[in-house]
């Protein structure tokens, strides 16, 4: 029984390390889109591992924690996608490292045509 609890604590520690990586990534990345990548991915796995580890320590909380894990797993990609779309809509510039931007090529020409119609 004691081994299960220590395993849970170690899993929680790994989750905390992933959250630390996410915050380092959000500081170091050069533009908004890469920050969203670093921030959402590492923090999703980090919080999932943290919740699962606590669930191993307290098995009677496991069902509620699984509900919370499902919620994090559904809501986190959606919010990152919505933020990315908003960033592209208000034309936040991409960093100089960026190689190509297919979305700008496609939607940029469409809006130009609409303005031409007016």
């Amino acid at each position: 029984m004691e081994y299960l609890k220590i395993t849970g604590a170690v899993i929680t520690l790994i989750g905390a390390i992933f959250i630390l990586f996410a915050s380092i990534g959000i500081l170091r990345m050069p533009d908004v889109y890469n920050r969203i990548q670093a921030g959402t991915k590492a923090s999703t796995l980090g919080s999932i591992l943290g919740l699962f580890g606590i669930g191993l320590i307290h098995p009677d909380w496991m069902l509620k924690l699984l509900l919370l894990i499902m919620f994090v797993l559904i809501s986190n990609p959606v919010s990152s996608h919505v933020l990315g779309r908003a960033a592209h809509y208000i034309k936040v510039p991409l960093s100089d490292l960026t190689l190509l931007d297919k979305l700008e090529e496609d939607t940029g020409s469409e809006t130009a045509e609409k303005e031409g119609d007016k």
Binding site: R28, M29, P30, D31, Y33, N34, L94, S95, L97, T98, L99, L100, D101, K102, L103, E104
Partner: peptide, 8 residues
């Protein structure tokens, strides 16, 4: 920081 970002 080895990244080559882009939108495909």
């Amino acid at each position: 920081l080895p990244i080559n970002p882009g939108i495909v």
